[in-house]
Design a protein around this nucleic acid. Structure first.
Lengths: 335, 335
DNA sequence: GACTGATGATATTTTCAAATATTAAATTTT
DNA sequence: AAAATTTAATATTTGAAAATATCATCAGTC
């Protein structure tokens, strides 16, 4: 079964293809009667304009490119849900790629989507990305780009983030208020903005409370569960048992959590722990973990809204606003 | 910055566009020297064929359409991860839509992707889908379609599933072996194949053990956490406390789990519980829950492999094979 | 040596479907 | 009847690829 084209309608009505096109697009220079006939027949033949032909002419599509480190990660899949939700209601579809935390793959994906002429990009960068040339290329070509959560600071484009420094400071201050003094921090790649800012928040909280910042209580690693596990392990090996831990994100906190349990230490009695992101699991483990809630679904929605405004030129490209979402400390039993 | 086209290269080398095209596509009737020149210049100018123009001519794309009920659901996001992984390595990208468990939206998504000329579909149907006309339309148009997990039986196309009846039977038999006799079942929409089959497995296990199937211990609901919570609630209100529960999936089990805890009953001493899907949370709650592991990532990969084989005509369309994955009972402390 | 046929190399035209700019015809107004 | 207006046809554009056309050159034949 072939798809109906503008020509099929034209032939049947013995008029030209352009008249059909103009009738369907409600041009004022087409007779009302002709328009009616065209529209009727189009409906009857189940006509749908070929988006590919349209895209070839206009050099753009109704597709939004989304690149995230890992689709199956709680935070990202729920942000993608939010993006899809908004995109769907604006007539866009989403092309989703994962970088697998690899810079190279992120570049390849960016280029592939660019060549597919996606109307715009929503990106959360990989752990290993520091170079932003592939994003600069998009901006040079005036292709709208919005970062969410993990953004590249030097690229001047709208960003949807949370106030990492502030909410980290709130989280660590909460630990201090609970009476903890020897607070460790497990951070991620120092090139990543969110890591830098959460680290900064940690230091600010300690400073405000006149507590010393001791380098030996800070462990540098990645963003996965295994990294948290390893960091806790190294603290134990160094015989440095903190009375609280602030982890850069939930997976890292969960990893530390497991290692603490394995060591026979009690949470929160021996070591209190705070994560970051409010992954679903944090509320279901024993004890449920204190964490910072990032409204992932809403962040995805907001990023999509901004991008679509940019695509539809409702926002000037040079209006590089950053939307900061409120992150909320959720106090549970691990602190 | 405009994209380089075949014409740009042709003009610079003072040859025709078709020569460039044929040179790049390694046609035998082009002089080696010409080919070399063309390829060099193409590389220098960063030439990339416009996939939209290509698609217009060929009437197909390098895009795979994926429709799932909810992207953020553990099982689906991890299956999508698997699909993307395979697609990426075969040069495909994935367009992801969610039906939000709505039949209408599933139909709209199917049509939208069809009009976008996706090369094929990977679908897990919504809870409310019983009519399969939108899928028949795809098959009529010879567009490859693969179902995974939630399939529509009457549509004759490859399916990637697990043996729901068998693994449910194994799960319930496990409960019986633990000495439980009054085993309740929380099922989902009866029109859904997976629900029917899991229900069947439940009944088979009871029959084999000569246990009665009592209708009052069977609760009908949806597939969400709230449904499990409600089902458990209704059992309690009816004053029917089973000694074990087999839930159609993990969210439903988790919902029941919460209600049981709220009722002050102990797991597994008072009520044992088995879920289905091995969602990540099941291993992290207290007590960790016995469940059936569905290899979601692998199922996604397999579905993508089959689809790509169909797209590339390595499989005849009428070879409607069903791939049944082994699901494995994971015994934890809730039973 | 002129002619035929084959082959090699490249050019031209058409195709895909829609949108749009230009042109032309028909109709109405002055 | 000329000018203005309405309406719709024709031609072009988008980029790549395929079908077809052109034009040498060379081998072989009479």
């Amino acid at each position: 079964m072939r798809n109906t084209t503008i020509m099929d309608i034209a032939k049947k009505l013995k008029i030209s293809a352009s008249t059909v096109s103009r009738a369907l697009n409600n041009y004022p220079d087409i007779n009302e009667e002709t328009k009616k006939q065209v529209k009727q027949l189009a409906k009857k033949l189940n006509y749908w304009p070929n988006p590919i032909a349209r895209s070839l002419k206009s050099n753009k599509t109704n597709v939004i490119g989304v690149i995230v480190p890992e689709i199956k990660h709680d935070f990202f899949s729920s942000a993608i849900s939010g993006i899809e939700e908004v995109a769907y209601h604006s007539g866009f579809t989403i092309l989703v790629c994962q970088s697998n935390e690899s810079y190279e793959r992120e570049v390849i994906n960016t280029n592939a989507l660019m060549h597919q002429r996606v109307a715009g990009f929503i990106v959360s960068i990989s752990q290993t990305t520091t170079n932003g040339d592939h994003f600069k290329a998009l901006i040079d070509r005036k292709i709208p780009l919005v970062f969410f959560d993990r953004a590249l600071n030097k690229i001047s484009t709208p960003k949807v983030v949370i106030d990492d420094a502030k909410s980290s400071c709130v989280a660590v201050t909460h630990l201090i208020e609970r009476g903890h003094k020897k607070i460790a921090h497990f951070t991620g790649p120092s090139a990543m903005n969110i890591c830098k800012l959460r680290f900064k928040g940690y230091k600010n909280a300690l400073k405000s409370a006149n507590l010393p910042i001791s380098e030996e209580l800070i462990r540098y690693g990645g963003l996965q569960e295994s990294d948290g596990y390893a960091s806790m392990d190294s603290l134990l090996k160094d015989n440095l048992i903190p009375d609280a831990i602030f982890a850069v994100n939930d997976p890292v906190a969960i990893g530390a959590f497991q290692r603490i349990k394995e060591a026979g230490l009690k949470i929160p009695e021996d070591i209190a722990i705070v994560g970051f992101s409010n992954n679903k699991i944090t509320s279901l483990i024993e004890p449920p973990m204190t964490t910072v809630n990032q409204p992932s679904f809403e962040m995805g929605k907001k990023a999509a809204e901004i991008l679509i405004d940019m695509i539809e030129k409702k926002i000037k490209n040079n209006q590089k606003k950053t939307v900061v979402f409120e992150a909320e400390l959720i106090v549970r039993k691990s602190t």
